[in-house]
Design a protein around this nucleic acid. Sequence first.
DNA 1: GCGCGAATTATTCAAGCGTATAATAACAAC
DNA 2: GTTGTTATTATACGCTTGAATAATTCGCGC
Lengths: 212, 212
Amino acid sequence: MTANRRTYTRASEAERREDLILATLDCIAEFGIQGATVRQIATRAGVTGGLIRHYFAGKDQMLEAAYRKVMTGMTETAVAAAAEGQTAKERLRRFVIANVTPPVTDPRTLSLWAAFISHIQTDPTFAAIHRDNYVAFLEALEGLLTDFFSEEKRTLSKAQCRSFAIALNALVDGLWLEGTLADDMFGEQELAETALASVEALLRLDPGYLSA
Amino acid sequence: MTANRRTYTRASEAERREDLILATLDCIAEFGIQGATVRQIATRAGVTGGLIRHYFAGKDQMLEAAYRKVMTGMTETAVAAAAEGQTAKERLRRFVIANVTPPVTDPRTLSLWAAFISHIQTDPTFAAIHRDNYVAFLEALEGLLTDFFSEEKRTLSKAQCRSFAIALNALVDGLWLEGTLADDMFGEQELAETALASVEALLRLDPGYLSA
DNA sequence: GCGCGAATTATTCAAGCGTATAATAACAAC
DNA sequence: GTTGTTATTATACGCTTGAATAATTCGCGC
């Protein structure tokens, strides 16, 4: 008599890869990157370990795909939120708020981001993914700023606009990071208010100009 | 005949612990936290693996000690730099610059910081270490700000002063993080200039007031 | 409904991990 | 000097890891 084997259903390549990536993120968020082992991830995805090597060249490649997903997700959330604004001013405001509000400001998102960031120093592929996303984020912000200043009839050199984008990016990143790490120290609203007031100051706008 | 055993010299407890912690940091900076194994660390420290358990209850405790060292080192560097200023304004200026200048802005420091940050979400001891240092940094900055505003004859509520400290901290953290991650995108001086200009804006000071 | 290719499982492997334990060599005390 | 203490080495253990391979079962084309 043949031994009992698990029954299973086949899935399309796209679905399986997606499932495996999601399972990877679940494991990292729950157990940290140390706990995201091939076996744990496979269990979470409802398959056996060997399957991972069927869809990815190795565990590292799967982690890289997972990192890409996290980063593009964060940027796109903010960009999408901005796009809903009618005016350039409103778009800028929404962009800033989206970055210090769930789901971007979220313990799980932070866990994922933190788990990956240390790989940037070690693995060139991770460095490239980070770089691409940083540049994309900066360009998105720079675009929002250019439109905003144009709407305000305020003319700025391209260099100055970029300088503003760098500062705003740093501020938003820092608030996001510390605010999420010490989530019990700040209310969600407090974080958003601080962000808006700080952006107003950075851009030399009148207090309340963005939040009103 | 007895087998050849390595000759060794005894060291004081303080020295050995220090050596082991430094070796731990070396390994993390070079190979990432995954590569910081007991054996690697011991080799780097010039001892054998078993000794680690003689000075620390386990590998985790040694990592915690190493994390403490990194964080207090960063904060103390900035605080020490600030202390050299004669006026409150100068102290604030030095504090900001120190945080976006080597050795704080340094690939190795970033590697270490990044390697540890993901543990904050998983391990309560790491969370406590982070919290303590964040609070200490924030209080140091808040003190500098209070003195500065007092010197400037500008009266601020304690709440507003704290709010400024949070924003400044976020800005400095963000510039430090992105500036060090993308160290080829920014010159050292550019980062410092951006930081000072941004702090001026955040505090609603005249442009150039701090840098001049 | 049959067969064939391929997705998936099951099993195995070698390497490396943190830890425990016992032997030993260094150093201080006397 | 000798002795006692203990810091340090050496070795081994049990476990987990990522990867490789072989066996199987699913599902599509005909």
